[in-house]
Design a binder for these strands. Structure first.
Lengths: 206, 206
DNA sequence: AGTGATTCGGACGGTGTGTCCGATCCATGG
DNA sequence: CCATGGATCGGACACACCGTCCGAATCACT
């Protein structure tokens, strides 16, 4: 509403702003009540726009879901990146990594539950979201790979196939997230992360 | 009048038979393509009955889902029970337990994905199924509890809070199931179970 | 053959999605 | 000052699914 002159750049900005406006609302609602329970109607009205306008910015429900996931994802990656710089020791890094991922769960448990399910499903929402999730998984796997190699090099981890190790660690983290997503009153996040990390480290220990 | 009891019993049998007929189809379809993607129409026609007839046996979609889960569940418990008798050593029992659970996943991966999501959600399908899943979790937790106590008593596991141990083991298994449910071409089941069990046992080792 | 239960087929109202189009607002440029 | 074009609105439409209902047909048993 401020500003006299509108250039094409400004229109871009406005457009992005509108988009984010809808995405924010959708993320909140999806996070609170799950995806199947939130209609496009509700998102639109909550965001203060007409339903048809939402379809100007997102081709369909799936695209909106994808946008929400991408937002969650980039947020997560950013958090992990700073963690990665702050911590050096593999065990600490793992613990902080887990803590960041649990934070995502705490942020929007119901939404995360969706993320879990849709993995690999050819369902309506699923196919798009599943692909997105797979990419996230790959990125995290890369981080874990480096972490395992580093740990083995330092002699704190026993020798084992990095691929198997990644898979097992990933499974543990996945399970921790999923279980937490389902709990009405989860434990303090740092405690949970510490326990999980310690258990994994025991399993990896030399 | 004559043979009333037999007649009634027969009706019971027929009724159960019909029910199972629908449940079998539903389990297959849900397992193949997920729950959101299979309509009641399709289940009915695939089972060779009218849609309205399905609603004679199941109050709604949620009830049908519950019935499917219960079928899966009792099948799983039965398999575990025989395993439990065959195996004595905690490590072996754990490995076989995991193998049985992965078998459930292999049986109907898409369906199992549902089971994961709905946990704790107030979504339409979710609330009923979630409750069912919670019960299953409790039963499995009981088994794991005994297993941990036994392992500690034998001195093969290090001393740790059984509740924490159960939670961690559960998370690992949960993750293993979830990841496998999302994989198009999962590894041989026994290998996966062996790796997972071994990792857990390392984490528990004295 | 008669009777009661079971199943069928289809109609209905409700809800949600995605598409479409005219009406409206508003900044810009002539 | 007004015309123009883009963004937005609001609502209608077709489609799909769920759950309910009811009359008609079918079947099993006496």
């Amino acid at each position: 509403m401020t500003g006299r002159r509108t250039s094409d750049d400004l229109k871009e900005v406005i457009r992005d702003f509108r988009r984010d406006q809808v995405i924010d609302v959708a993320r909140r609602l999806f996070g609170e009540r799950g995806t199947t329970d939130v209609s496009m109607d509700e998102i639109a009205s909550e965001a203060g726009v007409a339903r048809s306008t939402v379809y100007v910015y997102f081709a369909n429900r799936g695209e909106l879901l994808r946008a929400c996931l991408q937002g969650m994802y980039s947020q997560l990656l950013e958090a992990i990146a700073t963690t990665w710089e702050q911590e050096e020791e593999p065990g600490r890094r793992l613990e902080r990594l887990i803590e960041e991922m649990l934070a995502v769960v705490d942020d929007s448990p119901a939404f995360f539950r969706l993320a879990l399910v849709t993995q690999g499903t050819p369902a309506n929402d699923g196919e798009v979201v599943g692909a997105e999730l797979a990419l996230i998984g790959l990125d995290i796997a890369r981080l874990l790979h480096d972490l395992v190699v580093e740990g083995v090099a330092r002699g704190v981890f026993r020798m084992l196939d990095p691929d198997v190790a990644i898979s097992l660690i990933g499974q543990q983290i996945y399970g921790a997230m999923a279980v937490r997503a389902g709990e009405p009153m989860p434990r303090p996040r740092d405690e949970a992360a510490a326990d999980t990390a310690q258990f994994i480290l025991h399993g990896l220990a030399a």
